[in-house]
Nucleic acid binder design. Structure first.
Lengths: 344, 344
DNA sequence: AAAAATCGTCGAAGCGCTTCGACGACCCAT
DNA sequence: ATGGGTCGTCGAAGCGCTTCGACGATTTTT
């Protein structure tokens, strides 16, 4: 391994000069700088990360804690993670991948050891165990998601409450009076995941305001679960003509089942989804949907964090305004009685 | 931050003793050990990662390079990444997340700076630019995937050639003589991704041996692309009764289109997929499939790497034997003429 | 013309840890 | 009893970098 000292010798300067060339923290004459840079290139020098971290007491690493579970939309997580990694690189940071498995211990370990300068937490629960620790450590952090108490924390998330409201508004404007909400798996609600509850809040509040009946049903992914859920929905509310789906793995099953039952989308039934854009456009019916801006969230998180690390940051909650894109899955409510029941 | 020295003072021993308690590299009397451990706990001591890396010249970090692209099956990547992260933790390593974006430079940077002790590369191309560098650096590495030349490299992957063969065998045994292969997006083949080409090899070779006709069509994900591809397939080979799908985002569209055309699965047409188990079981028809053992691959990769880091490792290529699970999507070929053409 | 400020560079201290050699204390065989 | 081993502990020397203060050499100010 080439060291700073070797570069210095090669360039005929002292070690500290090389260091200053690298960091730009003191002015260096153009000639010297060029000679040093030349030596760095010739020798293929890379500063040793450990030594840097030790001497500078910053590791230039951001820790990213992703959920371990895979009962929620995985591509969103992946997209966020990739956005975080690429954005971090543009600011000179690397990303350490932590899984939720270790829980609060990971926070202690990573901040305690100085492994990372800052943290990004995904899949934050309303009363998350990691938050008290995070507040304590004093290391900069950004949550992707929204806990119950945000004092002293920086959070970035889609405004799911507004997203829920938007979905109801859209359907109500089209004349739908009975709306079913197909939600995430029950487990997601049981552990009080913020985004799921907030969407529901938004849906319910606006539904009440607009005089729309709402039926919420959590649903495991997949075909069979969706079939059972759908049967229950129509059993309980036969007049249902609008669906809001917030569960990636229920979307395609729902569409297929509706088709099979002879309920046409959007003629008989309208479907609105809360999902990444890619899913909405690739579904068997192009879906009217509020998209989840995964990439944007990842980028945002990193940029806030970097700002904090540079001493410019503030604690704030950034809620990204939802956008509903009309596609082929929603239309005016039929004025006739609910559509024929299919063979199901 | 609590330091080693403070722990030492608190426990009434020297710093080196604390270090030896931590590493276990020299014997320590039970009494001393307990006193030190007690102090560590009381003070909430975490060894400083940078100092450790510097003094010990190992960072206890494994770099994982994931593909930036999202034109291939993302959940598989995510599952591998999570398996890597959790397995690494059980061996005392953390994982640094790199995206393919930086390319070979990332390899140089990470190994040059000693940021990571070892690397795992995903999405390896047949002639991957990163490989020469990897061989040079001498740092342990494991590839998930298989390049053209594996000398001096350790690789872990599903035996996609065997997987392809297995699919053909299964369909041939059921009496199918005309098989269509729905592949990944064209871009995947254009960049010579190993697993796609190897699957194709396996399919073709066994098809030739068994006297089965094979038609391969790359396919972008989604409904429309699949519709176009399917039309071309039946146009060119009307007698097609077997499908092999290696493209997660084409599966559900294919099933829906077949249904719409009045081709029953598995009565008229059999479908075999190469995909993660979760996808196979959650599809609208439970799919006969060769599953992609993502978790196993991630675990394997880390364990090989750790073995190498401990000086026990060897360079070898581990191909995981594919397993085909029969589910509801494949059955005997109809003896009658190809099924009716639907409204499409 | 002298004093003050600025610039470019250097030497040295130290970040917190690992690890090597040393050194008593103790146990065994002779 | 005496020499040779272990065993448990310690001190000190770095690992490669950052950063502070110092110091000539210029440049600016008065």
């Amino acid at each position: 391994m080439v060291t700073l000292a070797e570069v210095a010798r090669h360039a005929g300067v002292s070690a500290s000069t090389v260091s200053y060339v690298l960091s730009g923290k003191r002015s260096i004459s153009a000639g010297t700088r060029q000679r040093v840079e030349q030596s760095i290139r010739e020798l293929g020098y890379h500063p040793n990360a450990g030594a840097r971290a030790l001497a500078g007491s910053r590791s230039n690493i951001i820790a990213l804690m992703v959920p371990l579970r895979t009962d929620m939309y995985v591509p969103v997580m992946m997209e966020i993670a990739i956005a975080v990694a690429t954005t971090a690189r543009t600011h000179g940071y690397d990303v350490l991948l932590l899984t939720g498995e270790e829980g609060p211990d990971a926070v202690r370990r990573v901040t305690g050891s100085g492994l990372a300068d800052a943290m990004i937490l995904m899949d934050v629960e309303l009363e998350d165990e990691r938050l008290p620790l995070l507040r304590q450590t004093g290391r900069p952090s950004v949550l992707i998601g929204l806990p119950a108490d945000t004092t002293g924390l920086t959070c970035v998330d889609l405004d799911f409450t507004a997203a829920g409201a938007l979905c109801v508004e859209h359907l109500a404007a089209l004349g739908h009076r009975d709306i079913a909400v197909i939600g995430e798996a029950p487990a997601v609600y049981e552990r009080h995941t913020g985004f799921a509850e907030r969407t529901l809040d938004g849906l319910r509040t606006r539904a009440r305001e607009l005089g729309v009946r709402l039926l919420h049903r959590p649903c495991e992914g997949g075909y069979d679960a969706m079939a059972a859920t759908l049967a229950r929905v129509f059993d309980e509310r036969p007049a249902t003509t609008g669906f809001v789906v917030q569960n990636e793995s229920a979307i395609e099953p729902l569409l297929a089942l509706l088709r099979r039952q002879g309920r046409a989308v959007p003629e008989d039934v309208s479907v609105v989804a809360v999902c990444p854009e890619q899913v909405a456009t690739q579904a068997s019916v192009r879906l009217t949907a509020v998209s989840i801006p995964a990439r944007q969230m990842g980028r945002y998180a990193v940029e806030h964090l970097v700002a904090k690390l540079d001493g410019r940051g503030t604690d704030e909650v950034v809620l990204i305004a939802p956008e509903l894109t009309r596609r082929a899955s929603s239309g005016p409510a039929a004025t006739r009685t609910p559509p024929p029941t299919g063979k199901s």
